[in-house]
Write a protein that binds this DNA or RNA. Structure first.
Lengths: 202, 202
DNA sequence: AGAATATATTAACGGCGTTAACAAAAAATT
DNA sequence: AATTTTTTGTTAACGCCGTTAATATATTCT
């Protein structure tokens, strides 16, 4: 009926509030069953208010992705500072990604397996997104391994791809295959990491 | 306005016609943008007619999945008959899955990465679906390798999981990551197969 | 105080999946 | 051959959805 008595004094603060609610809703309901109206009800505002802070539904998802990749690249740089051995750094980085996926499968799915929010390759490269930054850091870690002579001479891009492929596969299977017992996922994950890193080393 | 002059004489025939149109529409438009109304328009019938042949939207998807798994398990048995070496059989089977995915990414996605149409593990096991059959054949092929002493003693289930994980990962990445150059996918695929099979052999 | 801007609302458009009510053709029964 | 029943199709409607337009009110600026 009446208008909200409490207004959003600080735009960014309220924007973040919406984003948090959206992330939760996206994860619990899934991308398909998310709706702007549900989100509106959750934050107790009308649906159209959301459009004052986000262009549309996909803009919300974009913000969630960027948030994730921001944290991820920070974490990668931390790992890099702590660990001295390049291959060990790579293992840690890879495990971090996989463990995040195993612990937060639906957020992982939301970020990596939903209608790409970053457009084509050209758009991705020029847009200077956190997603792009993260990829570059990951690639640098791989390059460090190659430069240190501890990894067979393959294009760093390909190696990054292989690792990401493995991680993506594990999480997808974990999510979509009902006959994929949860207890086994740990075993599969460990085996995957070992086989891949051993296969990649000189 | 008027009622259709040409009626569907043979139920199964018309059902298949709908299914073919649905598959095409699901693949071209994606699961998200598929709609019963579009399908209706495509086959030139009213939307509600579809409900005389399929329970609902997901029932259509289920039929498409079963169709695929039927073909897949047949193909696996063919490979098994031709090839004599167990590991070679496994390689062929694995490559068949991956190549199908690389050639038909959106159908692969539709079948493996959409809201599971097979329910929980218990439901999957008791329902006697083609999906279940396919999994069992795949597992038998792996078991043959183990029995022949050519593969390290690991649970066959785990090995199947690892291979499927790799395949799923490759296809997902191929679909969702704009920066995943198409030309590279072949290289990554070959490397994956080699590393995995070598790592699994005794 | 008054103008301008930011923030929020309701109403509406055109789409969706699905069900209900109904019509007509085909098949079965008498 | 006439009539009942079943199958196959239709239109209308319900309650969702994303998004835009028009509008009202609060806050901020001058």
């Amino acid at each position: 009926m009446g208008v909200k008595e409490k207004r959003a004094k600080y735009r960014e603060e309220f924007r973040q509030e919406i984003l948090d609610a959206a992330r939760e809703l996206f994860i619990t309901e899934g991308y398909e069953n998310f709706s702007m109206r549900k989100l509106a009800e959750k934050i107790d505002y009308s649906a159209t208010t959301i459009y004052l802070y986000f262009k549309n539904r996909d803009d919300l998802l974009f913000a969630i992705c960027e948030e994730f990749f921001g944290n991820f690249s920070t974490r990668l740089n931390q790992i890099r500072l702590v660990s001295r051995d390049p291959v060990e750094t790579l293992r840690q980085a890879f495990l971090y990604l996989m463990n995040f996926g195993l612990k937060n499968p639906y957020q992982y799915k939301l970020i990596f397996f939903t209608k790409s929010v970053y457009g084509s390759r050209e758009e991705l490269v020029k847009k200077e997104s956190m997603a792009r930054t993260t990829y570059l850091v990951f690639k640098e870690i791989v390059q460090d391994c190659i430069d240190a002579g501890q990894m067979r001479q393959t294009e760093a891009d390909v190696i990054v791809d292989i690792l990401v492929v493995a991680s993506h596969g594990l999480i997808t299977k974990n999510i979509y295959c009902a006959n994929f017992l949860k207890e086994r996922s740990g075993t599969v994950a460990r085996t995957l990491v070992d086989v891949l890193l051993r296969g990649l080393q000189k």
